[in-house]
Amino acid sequence: MQTVGDSANVIVVGAGVVGCSLAFHLARAGAKVRVFDKGGICAGMSARSGALVRMHYTFAPEAELAWKSHRYFKNWSELVGGRCGFVQTGFALVVDERNRERLIANVAMLQRVGVDTQIVTTAELKKLEPEAFVEDVALAAIAVVLGTALTTLIPLHLFQVVVGTLLLLFGLRWLRKAILRFAGIIALHDEELIYQREVVALRAQGLAKTGMDWVGFTVTCKSVLLEGLEVVFVILTLGAHGTAAFHAALWGALAAGVLVLSAGLLLRQPLTHVPENWLKFSVGALLCSFGVFWGAEGFGETWPWEATTLVAILAVFLVVSWGSVRMVRRMLPQGAHIAVRNI
């Protein structure tokens, strides 16, 4: 019978970041190492860390350890192999006048350890990080305020679950209706007629000659604010990985906004020739795919091809939807045609 002692001269119990690091360095030093863990590699607290790599510590040995590990994070593929996802963004600690002396002493200690750090004034900080003062666009301002508060207080995975749930509910609603329309169970939309009816109904309810038009106010709020907040949540979810990611998401959203407006103006006429149900079907399938992707990621899924998995999820939804259209069509008697609302 083979025992552990035959294949290893060092046993590490616990495959968290400390255990794995220990085993890695012992193995590099020539030891035969075996690692045991009841849950798997990084199954405990290591998987739940904030993934923040910083050098600013007040305890010198801790700062020294962090500084030594920094070399590994920066050169991971050469020193360890593979990718660890480390992105260097910089770190700024802002203190008030009362903590000034303490900070000066702390920075002096860090510099003795070798950490590349220095004290800067507010003006110098503005020069180093000018993007931290984005305040010229309304939604960008909301995103900055909420982003700082929410991403600090609420964990990223909770955001993903909330956004995923909303997208899934919204998407399923559209997808179901589009499938029922393709199957002939509910009538295809006549968007123009619906619009005219809506206008008449709203005018009948809301337009008083004097006073506030609450119906008009609510409808406008719903249209603009909900869509806008949806964008804000997307920015927050994508940008919660750090300042650089946040700014990238913010500028990406602004660029997308300009692009969508321009595309809307250009494609307004051609799009009227695309059947409305095809558009709704595509949007429904896309929203469902994003909902499943983010919802599951929020619950801990690590998708095998990261964001590219979205294409596979979309393909699954399209195949299932196509099959559902055929299934429902077959259930109706030959030649039957009904138009039942809210079935």
Binding site: L168, L172, L175, R176, I179, L180, A183, I185, C288, V292, V316, F317, V320, S321, G323, S324, M327, V328, M331, L332, P333, A336, I338, V340, I343
Partner: peptide, 20 residues
């Protein structure tokens, strides 16, 4: 989610067939 969509549409189709 896929099973949910299929089962919901099956129920809707069944109901529509009964209505017809």
């Amino acid at each position: 989610t896929c099973l949910l969509v299929v089962s919901n549409l099956y129920a809707a189709g069944h109901h529509a067939a009964r209505l017809v």
